[in-house]
């Protein structure tokens, strides 16, 4: 570390200022000497990703989706009461809907009998507000490779979250009359799972098929490191697909109000 350059004959104020300047110089000098690892050839990786993005990503994601479905099914089949209860799979966009009987519970429960296969415990989230990755709309726009659209009548989002699954998911939030309204936007090639006790209401958003979920249910998604995130959804959810993206509005709104908001989101004319 370099020697100090204090001025012992100055006034106390001068000495304080000199000490600050000297400290800044020491920091600067050491920071400049910092030994970084060698810079990798990022340009080559970027070039390859840009050249191969479309087909490679599509096939990789299909493989990931297939693997994720398999994992969910295996985990579910390991639990006898769920094995008996799951009987149908629906899908819209990125969300697979595993239909379960009303008595089935996917949250680990104390049990008198040992289960044949231990099921890994996921990370539970109580609320949308617990989501990681809060950021700004500007940063979200600079990070994701899709257009972030939201209902104009809600105005600019009050909070913005970015979550990295195998691709980015954006969550926009507003508060109306003390209740949150969240819009979740994710590429349809990703994988998320929803466990619902009965047939969701089939409806439409503009001309696209949509599902309406108005009972508490379980929602799961996965982080790139394999961590599973679970959320108990207590609000109503409208789920639909537009272009390559899947949208969810989660709120206490009724179907008609949620649909009105959803229909404000449209693709621009080419």
């Amino acid at each position: 570390m370099s020697e100090m350059n204090d001025h012992p004959n100055g006034t106390p104020n001068d000495q304080g200022q000199n000490q600050e300047e000297s400290w800044e110089m020491r920091v600067q000098e050491n920071a400049r000497q910092f030994a970084y690892p060698p810079t990798p050839d990022v340009a080559a990786r970027v070039r390859i990703q840009r050249l191969q993005r479309r087909p490679t990503v599509v096939y990789r994601r299909l493989a990931q989706v297939a693997a994720a479905i398999l994992i969910v099914l295996i985990a579910m089949m390991a639990v006898p009461e769920i094995r008996a209860a799951v009987f149908e799979i629906l899908r819209i966009g990125s969300v697979r809907i595993f239909q379960t009987a009303p008595t089935a519970s996917l949250t680990p429960q104390p049990s008198q009998t040992a289960r044949p296969t231990p099921v890994p415990l996921p990370t539970p989230l109580q609320s949308v507000l617990d989501l990681p990755g809060e950021t700004t709309l500007e940063n979200a726009r600079a990070t994701v490779n899709f257009e972030i659209r939201y209902p104009p009548s809600l105005g600019e989002p009050e909070r913005v979250f970015l979550q990295q699954m195998e691709d980015w998911q954006v969550v926009l939030m507003w508060e109306r009359d003390g209740a949150p309204i969240s819009l979740h936007i994710m590429p349809s090639a990703t994988f998320q799972a929803k466990f619902f006790p009965r047939d969701p209401v089939t409806t439409r958003v503009n001309s696209s098929p949509a599902y309406w979920f108005d009972e508490p249910h379980l929602f799961m998604f996965w982080l790139p490191n394999g961590d599973e995130i679970q959320r108990d959804i207590t609000d109503n959810v409208l789920l639909w697909e537009l272009g390559d993206l899947t949208y969810r509005i989660e709120s206490s709104l009724d179907l008609e109000a949620a649909q009105t908001l959803a229909e404000e989101i449209v693709l621009e004319d080419k």
């Binding site: 990681p132 990755g133 950021t135 940063n139 600079a142 990070t143 970015l162 979550q163 990295q164 982080l223 790139p224 490191n225 961590d227």
Partner: peptide
């Protein structure tokens, strides 16, 4: 921003 989000996430 990317690094911070990634660090928070995993």
């Amino acid at each position: 921003n990317t690094a911070r989000n990634r660090r928070r996430a995993v």
